[in-house]
Design a protein around this nucleic acid. Structure first.
Lengths: 119, 119
DNA sequence: CAGATTCACAACCATTTGGTTGCATATTAA
DNA sequence: TTAATATGCAACCAAATGGTTGTGAATCTG
């Protein structure tokens, strides 16, 4: 159903913003965009336990912004360019909305739908 | 100290992304950008209690993205254009960061992963 | 093989989040 | 003045978050 598709899309946006709502995680994203890094290297940068950093990486992974790939005994954390680009586009859309350039888009996602009690 | 200034700035970013990490709140932002609305009107749109919507508005208010002004017995919720523009700029910076690093990475991408770029 | 490295994962804990109901207060309308 | 409207706010609750420690399994390395 359309409602579920929308709900899924919204949930995905939720996860992306949620993932970015933590300074450590934003920093991790920056770092792995610079270069793939294993979890230990990442963990060494922050004043918290290895397991805590592991959890942050898991949150980012769930949001789709990063992914891990194995290399021997280590897991290399790297950016998922498609997802990051999706996030970027999403931010673009908010920017457009906020700038008020979306007079036409108002007709599309304006009054009609957003209201539905579907959550 | 510089550290605290940075921490404050990061905390503010936290609050902004956090505020946007909920579909109802994103919807509220869209709506009040379209036109100032009182809390009751907003609450009528969503399948949750008045108090719940009140709390969502409070979160948005703490993030600085919206503000309330009194008109008689009602509180009109409206966008805070300065703060929204600040947030927009912030998102722009992330966009630039991501795009910039990705572009730069594209140049390097052909090479083997063994190559250490000292950082 | 033995030890070190790297990671996964479970259990636990405190705090925050997102929701509820109920009650109090301010303002408008009749 | 009384009733209806619009809001604020406290108390409560379940689930999620963000952290910890501890245990165990893979994978190098000497």
């Amino acid at each position: 159903m359309v409602v579920n598709l929308l709900a899924d899309a919204e949930a995905e946006v939720d996860r992306i913003f949620q993932a970015l709502a933590d300074a450590t995680r934003r920093d991790i994203v920056r770092r792995v965009i610079g270069r793939e890094q294993n979890v230990t290297d990442l963990a060494d940068r922050y004043a918290m336990s290895f397991a805590a950093v592991q959890k942050h990486v898991a949150v980012l992974q769930r949001s789709g912004l990063v992914a891990k790939r194995r290399r021997g005994r280590e897991q290399l954390v790297g950016p998922v360019l498609d997802a990051i680009d999706r996030a970027r586009t999403l931010l673009d859309e908010y920017e457009a909305l906020w700038r008020g350039r979306i007079d036409r888009m108002d007709a599309i996602l304006g009054e009609a739908e957003g209201s539905e009690a579907g959550r």
